[in-house]
Design a binder for these strands. Sequence first.
DNA 1: GATGGTTGAATTGTTCAACACTTGACTTCG
DNA 2: CGAAGTCAAGTGTTGAACAATTCAACCATC
Lengths: 228, 228
Amino acid sequence: MERSQIDRVSVADQVASILRQRILTGELRPGTPLQEVPLAASLGVSRNTMREATRILSLENLLKRSIHRGVAVSQLSLKDVQEIYHLRRMLEIAGILAAKERRSEVLPELRTALEGYARAVRERDWPRAVGFDLQFHSLLIRFHHNRRLEAFYQRVIGELRMGMVLVDRGHDHPSALIPVHRKIYQLLAAGNLKQCAAVLVQHLDDSESRLIRVMNGQPPKRKSRRSV
Amino acid sequence: MERSQIDRVSVADQVASILRQRILTGELRPGTPLQEVPLAASLGVSRNTMREATRILSLENLLKRSIHRGVAVSQLSLKDVQEIYHLRRMLEIAGILAAKERRSEVLPELRTALEGYARAVRERDWPRAVGFDLQFHSLLIRFHHNRRLEAFYQRVIGELRMGMVLVDRGHDHPSALIPVHRKIYQLLAAGNLKQCAAVLVQHLDDSESRLIRVMNGQPPKRKSRRSV
DNA sequence: GATGGTTGAATTGTTCAACACTTGACTTCG
DNA sequence: CGAAGTCAAGTGTTGAACAATTCAACCATC
């Protein structure tokens, strides 16, 4: 039975997964305080187990622990966003440039992410779209063939995802991403790595400035915003 | 009192620090199983607190958790070492090449690490020497000015340190590092970044192959030793 | 003698209840 | 007002208990 797969994960890990999910989908918004007793009770686990779970997530930077003050969902600052995009530029570009061989292992997954994104946008499922968008980029790290780097990047992307799901979909033009990602995919598949990297740089710069603009409460540049 | 500084850290964090120290100095060797009850008792903390501590260290890859089988000090495989050196080459070199400005913030600390290493070698304190060696390299990551990257690198270097303190000092020539590090420091201070990076690459390659050779049970090449 | 199932002690996983300590808001008093 | 004192709520930590799992020893069967 696959129970032997599922039950081999400790309850604390499962609780951490549940909370992680809630944070990454925006169900738990940044700043939300999490009280141990009610939260543990609502999930049917003990306080100690809940503490282990929050410990895990705080080491992923998704929760912030203040001693004797409790834990709260982390809040992404502008500086955080800049730092993360700095990493994205460095690691994704290097990833692409390292994609000289064994591309066929990753290309199908990139395609899946591409299609998943398009479908999520059609269905107006913003959190899922963000997930696919960032998954596409995470896959670029695979070309480094370095598990530690992949795990690290996954965590960092998680932080970013937490912030991105919160931007009002109306502010963004989700479908504009599709051709860019497709272009990146095609250049990658064709082995035109330098041009691919160039497109990616442009894309990341766009993405960063758009996110920062929204975080500053300004509308993204494109067209004028009709507020809600 | 500075007690207000120390006590702001939870007991679990302090226990984790103690165990981390023991692992990184080689006092706790890879593979050593850690039993919760005796270990908690020996440190005067409860089992739950000890579990939090081991949870922290397992997320740093210093301990390995097998469900219902307990935790043990992680064992660095050859593949791990190669992966870590891959990261070192990528990140340290990029760090140096990014050191175009604000070098003066880091140079004094590099010098301190340099001197600390020399002193530790004179005093035949191998674990401390390894610490200073790797601290020197960790400082190169500062030039990225990216806290997430620094934290990640610190963790990875910790893993490597765990493995390096165990190599028999007799196999190595600790004092040979001193001129290399000094050269790197000087080129860096002079702003000769490309040459500095070249020296670093050579140094890392040497370091990796020496470590791998020792891990394979072979003596390091030194002089007339015919080996691969 | 090899194989395969059973038992049981040891250890980890999880829960629970209690207490200590810190914080932040509220109250009181100058 | 403002400073000091008070207090409830919440986290930090403990100790004990029980459940679940592992591992090795044992036994029975072929």
